[in-house]
Nucleic acid binder design. Structure first.
Ligand SMILES: [Zn+2]
Ligand SMILES: [Zn+2]
Ligand SMILES: [Zn+2]
Ligand SMILES: [Zn+2]
Lengths: 132, 132
DNA sequence: TTAATAATGTTATATTATTACATAGTGTTA
DNA sequence: TAACACTATGTAATAATATAACATTATTAA
């Protein structure tokens, strides 16, 4: 089952759910949504999530403990992620900006640490919410 | 008690602990450490932490659910935070880089959202760990 | 076909965080 | 001072997030 599609059964079920969602999904929301498909316990969800994050199919929004599907082919397997988060409606968008990504990937710490990965979360009020 | 020092009793106890620590502290580690000082329950810790984050005295490392004291007068009350995190020894350093901070504060999303705040977490292996 | 690896199923438990409600301290102003 | 708003505290219970441990099955590679 793994070959043709590179996702396993549980991984595919959970990825499909996250990918169809317009908002970040939390692990237990996912768990409740997939119980009818036979996924009954937290470890099944967390294992699939871990794998999907590892392979860059989804990202974790750390400030929300929630997961979104990757919308950006440029984030190179989760090595360089950036998001905009509306503090009013909670909408999350993955930022796809080559200049920003390059600037941060090239950033070198004064203390000599070479970074392999970064995650950036911007917060504000989105256009839609501003109108209200 | 609030006037002279702008921190309340519990806030001061918890700030002192985090400030003296060389590593990020987790809420329940803090709770266990301050029980002899009369702080006995999670809400007391979380309330103090919330306030300290709000006022920029400490920051939350989202990827670790842990807290560090602010080492940077430039982060302007938690509006612009950046950290380097060693994936081996778990050391966390607050990055103080005006150019980086300005670059990100000035960054404008294509979708027209104006950002009020950001948090950036870099991951890698620190110098010390590279030698081993 | 055997062995290694990856994925699954299941139960229990650990860790992180909040709700709800009662009480006490502090600052302002009538 | 007394009345009030506001902030902080204390406490019990519970919610939400995540992992450990172990048994089983599926897939791949040698
Ligand atoms: Zn992505
Ligand atoms: Zn919004
Ligand atoms: Zn700071
Ligand atoms: Zn290190």
């Amino acid at each position: 089952m793994y070959k043709e599609n590179n996702l396993s059964k549980n991984q595919q079920i959970i990825f499909d759910l996250i990918n169809k969602s317009s908002e970040p999904l939390k692990a237990y929301t996912i768990l409740f949504s997939v119980q009818k498909k036979g996924i009954k316990a937290p470890p099944q969800v967390y294992r699939a999530l871990d794998k999907l994050v590892e392979t860059g199919k989804i990202h974790k929004i750390e400030s929300k403990n929630a997961f979104v599907a990757c919308r950006n082919s440029d984030c190179e397997i989760s090595k360089a992620t950036a998001f905009s988060i509306c503090e009013s409606c909670e909408t999350v968008d993955e930022i796809s900006d080559m200049k920003l990504s390059k600037y941060l990937s090239d950033f070198n710490h004064k203390k000599g640490m070479k970074f392999k990965r970064f995650n950036l979360e911007f917060f504000g009020i989105c256009k839609k919410c501003k109108k209200d």
